[in-house]
């Protein structure tokens, strides 16, 4: 059975699906004295958090918060963390809050999620206070005040974690890298407006799409040769003849609809973005349904648009 190919703004949307898998996620709110020091803190805590494969956690800013939106009335950021298991999430959170936020001048950390299973936040690092840490319970929330050299590091006792989804994605196949980058930027900008999702890779974009397995025994994944322009002719390719650059956008989200919304908004923004005329097609990465239970069919996403 053959279906007609869908196009958007003249760009072919392949009839395929992105394959996503379950993850555990939590949200924290970081605040600081001003934008500069907030950014330092956020950059640090979300650094080296692109893929669970080696980073153990995927993290990114969900959105920036105005002073009126934070518990302590300062500028802040909501940050989402995704990991493959609750234990891993907890371990990463402990290390990152301890190494990146406790250390960052003027920062404070709060829970960004009130339901789900508790994940230690301040509870895990309070002992840094060497017995001088102070616990304060306001209503049903407990805060730790850990004495540090610039005053006190205030950190909520726990945040919570819920079941979430990782690995939502789509691929932008372009004639050249400049246009690929340009539309990818538009797509990421659109995705950033969606709540409950992050794009964990640098600038939200990943160029090293991978396939499962390798000729080298130790590697579990290797370059996705079917999409590498320079391997055309050496291996069976998935690329149109004039494609010279492919970029992937990976999306983690707290639920299925958020990931779907983000993919749709990203694809639409890509197709309508500047230099989109040099985009050849939009496709997605999957492993034939073996990897995860969540399948985001590009056509049904675009149909809804």
């Amino acid at each position: 059975m053959s279906h007609p190919n869908i196009t958007l703004n003249g760009i072919l949307i392949r009839k395929t699906f992105a394959e996503a898998f379950p993850m555990k996620a939590t949200r924290i709110v970081v605040t600081a004295r001003n934008t500069v020091w907030l950014k330092h803190a956020v950059n640090s805590v979300t650094g080296f958090a692109t893929s669970v494969i080696a980073c153990k956690v995927e993290a990114g800013v969900e959105r920036w918060l105005k002073p009126s939106q934070t518990p302590d009335g300062r500028e802040g950021a909501a940050i989402l963390f995704f990991a493959m298991s609750g234990d891993q999430l907890e371990a990463q959170l402990r290390d990152r809050v301890g190494q990146c936020l406790l250390t960052s001048p003027t920062s404070a950390v709060f829970s960004g999620m009130d339901e789900g299973k508790p994940v230690a936040l301040g509870r895990a690092i309070r002992y840094f206070g060497d017995g001088y840490q102070i616990s304060k319970k306001l209503g049903n929330k407990r805060y730790w005040r850990i004495p540090v050299m610039d005053g006190e590091f205030v950190c909520e006792d726990v945040t919570h974690r819920i079941d979430a989804i990782g690995g939502g994605n789509f691929l932008i196949v372009a004639k050249d890298i400049d246009s690929a980058l340009s539309v990818a930027e538009s797509a990421v900008a659109a995705i950033n407006k969606v709540a409950s999702v992050i794009t964990p890779f640098p600038g939200g974009v990943v160029r090293s799409g991978s396939k499962v397995g390798s000729k080298y025994r130790r590697l579990i994944a290797s370059t996705n040769d079917a999409y590498c322009p320079t391997l055309r002719g050496l291996v069976p390719t998935n690329l149109p003849d004039d494609a010279n650059a492919v970029l992937e956008i990976v999306i983690d989200g707290l639920n299925e609809s958020a990931v779907g919304d983000a993919m749709r908004d990203g694809i639409v923004a890509a197709c309508l973005g500047e230099r989109s005329e040099r985009i050849l097609e939009i496709t997605a990465s999957n492993f034939g349904g073996k990897l995860g239970p969540y399948h985001f069919h590009l056509h049904s996403l675009i149909d809804c648009a």
């Binding site: 302590d72 209503g139 005040r145 006190e152």
Partner: peptide, 14 residues
């Protein structure tokens, strides 16, 4: 400026 003070005040608001 005491960060905790701010949190406490916003708690008392409720």
């Amino acid at each position: 400026d005491n960060t905790y003070w701010n949190i406490f005040c916003s708690y008392m608001e409720g």
